[in-house]
């Protein structure tokens, strides 16, 4: 790898949906510098009107994801040296989502699809009931555990070419959450989840291309979760036919 030059040439997508433009900034390069540091430098030192989103800066909150040199990344945990050895950075809002302004993507469609996938807990017990003991030894729990570290950053959704071609598709994150809940002994509506992921935009649209697993910053594998949903939806439909 070549040494990082003392300056970075950073191209940033500016503007709102349908009226975007590219602006280039000259940013000082440091030995230890994340892409979020670069964006923050531009906003604080060059152009205070630059809109972007971040919160925790340590890879927990999932708010700072952007397209960096054409690939979706969590910018707070992405070192410039790793992605821009030639000193060139191209930063844009997350793909597959509308733009609110500059680098802030509108996450509404992303979270609307979580709701559409029934990717929310359907309580099986009330406040007065005992806890359901959860042990990682149980196979279903172990399967759920594989997906629960999702931080809702939207990187898999931006990486997914099926979402790009099929806007109704629920996407990897929502389907993975649906799968973790399906495997959660505390969820009371497994049939509801399977019905929600079996519609026109459901899990069966996935082509198993694997970009979600490739780009997930937490090394999760939504493709595996979606394969599980496909298997269980078919099994449930087959079972219903035989019971009828």
């Amino acid at each position: 790898m070549t040494a990082t030059p003392p300056r970075l040439t950073v191209t940033v997508q500016r503007g709102t949906e349908g009226a975007t433009r590219q602006e280039t900034f000259d940013v000082p390069a440091y030995e230890n510098q994340t892409v979020l540091d670069v964006v923050t430098w531009i906003q604080q030192m060059a152009d205070p009107t630059l809109a972007y989103r971040f919160a925790c800066r340590v890879g927990m909150c999932g708010s700072c994801a952007m397209m960096v040199n054409g690939e979706p990344r969590w910018t707070c945990r992405t070192h410039v040296k790793k992605v821009a050895s030639d000193g060139q950075l191209d930063i844009a809002p997350l793909r597959n989502l509308p733009v609110i302004k500059d680098l802030a993507a509108d996450m509404d469609p992303f979270f609307d699809k979580w709701v559409a996938a029934e990717a929310r807990l359907h309580p099986s017990a009330g406040r007065g009931d005992d806890f359901d003991p959860v042990t990682s030894q149980e196979p279903a729990r172990a399967e759920a555990d594989l997906g629960i570290e999702c931080i809702n950053c939207g990187i898999c959704y931006a990486a997914c070419d099926t979402v790009a071609g099929n806007p109704d598709y629920l996407g990897p994150a929502a389907l993975q959450r649906a799968w973790t809940l399906f495997n959660d002994s505390r969820d009371a509506d497994r049939d509801g989840i399977l019905a929600a992921v079996s519609g026109k935009g459901g899990c069966h649209n996935c082509h198993s291309m694997g970009s979600c697993a490739q780009y997930c910053p937490n090394d999760l594998n939504p493709m595996r979760a979606i394969a599980g949903l496909k298997r269980e939806t078919v099994r449930a439909a087959w079972g219903r036919k035989r019971d009828a």
Partner: peptide
């Protein structure tokens, strides 16, 4: 666009 029936078919 693809539902369960088309997927299974």
């Amino acid at each position: 666009m693809l539902d369960l029936r088309l997927y299974v078919a």
